[in-house]
Design a protein around this nucleic acid. Structure first.
Lengths: 348, 348
DNA sequence: TAATTATTTGAATACGTATACAATTATAGC
DNA sequence: GCTATAATTGTATACGTATTCAAATAATTA
């Protein structure tokens, strides 16, 4: 059905012909650092300009065995954290002369189909933000010699690089802060249950509460979204034994809790209820919300990820890297917290 | 500095060798519709599996002269409308067996550098969401035989395809709706001043107000963001002759106006002030906002864009296409409107 | 000036695939 | 059985570039 696109893109051979030189000469003119005389360069460049010639990067990558393309596997596009993440990745990569092939793992089999496709496009590396990697897939990447970095995921069995925010540590941080301010009835609102990010945040939180003699009284699930968080907030806050502190696995859910509490139920925040979110998306600092939240240092995480990936590309033999990046608490208006020096309490 | 990555990806020649057949046979096994006997297919596939062989798409695209890659030029990633847009594009394209090369035009010279890069990667087509096209660039694409579609932009001089929401029509729609409900003091909050989207929305709005004997009393600029919208809302609403109807060029700004009005100034919405936004992002329908807004039919627009682009790819000779897609009003809670049949008033 | 070295150039080949063409084998028709 | 046709396979070549090697030219030195 496809008509063969008779593209008129000029080739190096045509340029060479027009300039009266060899094809190799043309190639050298467009290869930084190659040996070319000034007049040769001039001749070739005018011919190239005349024909509108640009080197065919794909043909080049055939001989160079490197495409300068990085595949990014994604799916929660509309989540503000991920939107910003993608922007950060693409601009970081572009700055280092790499390009981004976007692999949407939203539908169907997700990663399972997207990833082999990426390999066929000979990407130099892969960043995965939306799933962990089955060992089959990990093997396939390894066999293809294509390095992979998981972002905010890690995989115990398979031998894959990862850069993560320290979710467990962050959960503990929040527990400490809330305990120090004298809260008594704790709740946690989970994201999607099967995500390691949500589970780890919860684990750190609960662990630390226990260690210091408290219990997690309540938990509910908001699937990382405002809408589901809104419903969950209703369930949590209308109970007679409603919590006086809610830790949410995302800012969107924290905003929903805030809206339900102040808008619908007349609960005073933070006097009667402390709310802490996660991510520090732009909205969290909107004037009307001012959500106290855990800040994932996104730039640093992206930086580290790119670093790890490019390292792995340049030194294929190195063993796997795991990098944990600490989160920090952003005190704002929705949580009653002790003086900031609680942060320096000895962490047991 | 780059070590030559000695990739171990198997080639069709290696598979052929292992299977004891010709390279052409291997190629045919992986070419849908080619003539291959069952036993040949079996032999090749087992050999391929054993070597972990996947065809090199780039090498293929050298002979086919088509990469199945579409370049998307973007930059307002974190704006929820654009985030959703990108998701919609990538999943639509992926469904049709195209892949997305993401071109971030955020920094530096933006499109001017990103686009030539895309051309070098021999993309089959380009979608531009963040800028219009200089005639130089348009020429370059035309010369390369690479079709381009502008999304929500159009260009008078250069001969480039475009799919747009009918911003002018939408502005008129809003004017009609607000007039019908008997408002008297109108204001407009602009996005970034140099964008055609904002300008066209304003133009339609003002035009239609005039036609029906009204004036635009006030205008201010919110640059499409919540923060700037917040500041602009303060300026607008603290005036003695404050408006009783504000039309905002984006939902984020409308939300800011709502927050300033209800949260800070105690203005009742919609009794004393009607607010209408633009885009219908997910947040606009959040329970606490329920912003009355103009809905850009994003799926239809994306659909149309992809359609136009793929058409242009398959039939290179056709002339340029301009497609205008009508917007619709989503009545919610922030605007006082007449009964819905005002929509059927004869449009002069 | 001649001899030596450094620089520039072109011819040939490789990268991994698809395909036109010819050669071969299988199938159908009688 | 034999011929005519269809299906399958291999050979050779093309896609557009980078790069090795040898040849040719320019620059340097004595």
């Amino acid at each position: 059905m496809r008509t063969k696109p008779t593209s008129k893109r000029a080739s190096s051979v045509q340029v060479a012909h027009l300039a009266g030189v060899s094809q190799a000469a043309v190639s050298r003119v467009f290869t930084p650092g190659a040996s070319v005389s000034a007049e040769m360069r001039a001749k070739v460049l005018t011919a190239a300009k005349q024909l509108g010639y640009h080197p065919n990067v794909l043909a080049r990558s055939l001989t160079q065995r490197s495409t300068n393309i990085i595949g990014i596997v994604m799916f929660r596009f509309t989540n503000p954290f991920y939107a910003r993440l993608l922007k950060e990745f693409s601009s970081q990569l572009q700055k280092r002369n790499y390009w981004t092939l976007l692999l949407n793992s939203e539908d169907d089999d997700g990663v399972e189909t997207a990833l082999p496709a990426a390999l066929q496009y000979q990407v130099d590396g892969i960043i995965i933000t939306s799933a962990t990697l089955s060992s089959t897939l990990a093997d396939e990447c390894a066999r293809a010699g294509t390095p992979v970095v998981l972002f905010n995921r890690y995989s115990i069995e398979s031998n894959v690089n990862a850069v993560c925010c320290d979710s467990v540590g962050a959960g503990r941080l929040v527990a400490d802060a809330l305990i120090a301010a004298g809260h008594t009835r704790y709740a946690f609102m989970a994201g999607e249950e099967n995500t390691s990010t949500s589970r780890d945040r919860e684990r750190g939180f609960v662990e630390r509460l226990r260690e210091r003699g408290h219990e997690l009284g309540l938990r509910d699930v908001g699937n990382f979204t405002y809408e589901d968080g809104y419903a969950a907030a209703h369930r949590l806050l209308r109970r007679p034994d409603r919590p006086d502190a809610v830790f949410c696995a995302s800012d969107l859910m924290a905003m929903a809790v805030y809206d339900v509490a102040t808008g619908e139920l007349g609960i005073r925040v933070p006097a009667e209820l402390s709310i802490i979110g996660f991510d520090d998306i732009a909205m969290a600092s909107w004037h009307k919300y001012q959500i106290t939240t855990v800040r994932q240092p996104l730039e640093r995480m992206v930086d580290a990820t790119v670093q790890v990936l490019l390292d792995a590309i340049q030194h294929p033999q190195t063993e796997r890297v795991l990098r944990l990046i600490p989160a920090t608490l952003m005190p704002r208006r929705t949580a009653r917290l002790a003086q900031p020096n609680f942060l320096r309490e000895p962490s047991v």
